[in-house]
Amino acid sequence: MRLSLLLVTSLAAVLTSSVACQRGVTVNTPTDPPVSGSVNGTDTPNPTSANTTDLRPARATAFDTTARPRWLEDRIQKHLAEAKQNPIVQISRYTYKGQTVYYESVGCCDQFSNLYNAKGNIICHPEGGLTGRGDGQCPDFDKNKTGEMLVWRDPR
């Protein structure tokens, strides 16, 4: 009895699945060879638009050049005299703990970023080092910085 019930259940499942496949669904796989006879031929058209995945910043980046302190101009000239860094060095101005500060990103590999006060003295190193968390002197910088303005980015 159990065997016949199992057979009937299995037969019903097979019939149901074959009926479902007969509902007019067709699958077409292209079998025509490429026009040139080779998949490496010239069948692919040339792009019709500019590359939209260029990750480099636009050359016409607007920098905030108002009231750059002299020490900051000197710092920028120092960067321009050195080899280009990867990633590109940039300097941004923020308000942090009620004062104007300047954040200077640095190039690659475990180097500390710099956070300067308005007089050019280093307050702390918010990022970088072996842990990537900086020197620990301003762990709340990312949460409490406001008013971001890009002051300079290496144009090279």
Rank of each mutant, 00 (worst) to 15 (best):
R2P: 13
S10W: 10
I88F: 01
V14C: 11
L72T: 05
S4K: 09
G132T: 08
A20Q: 14
G136Y: 09
S17F: 07
T9L: 13
G41S: 12
C138W: 05
A83S: 15
A67P: 05
D74Q: 06
A20M: 13
C108V: 12
F112E: 00
S38T: 10
T95L: 02
L80S: 10
L7A: 14
V25G: 07
S10N: 11
S4H: 10
D74Y: 02
D54S: 07
P34E: 08
T29K: 02
A83V: 12
E73R: 04
L6Y: 14
H79R: 06
T61V: 11
A81H: 03
Q99M: 00
P139F: 09
R70K: 13
V25A: 11
N117K: 06
F63K: 04
A118W: 04
A50K: 07
V89R: 09
Q85R: 14
R56L: 05
V151M: 04
Y94I: 02
E82Q: 15
K97D: 12
D43Q: 14
L11H: 01
D154N: 11
N117S: 03
T65Y: 04
L7S: 11
P139D: 11
C109D: 14
G132I: 06
V35N: 07
R23G: 07
G134D: 02
S36R: 06
N46W: 09
E73F: 03
Y102S: 05
T146L: 09
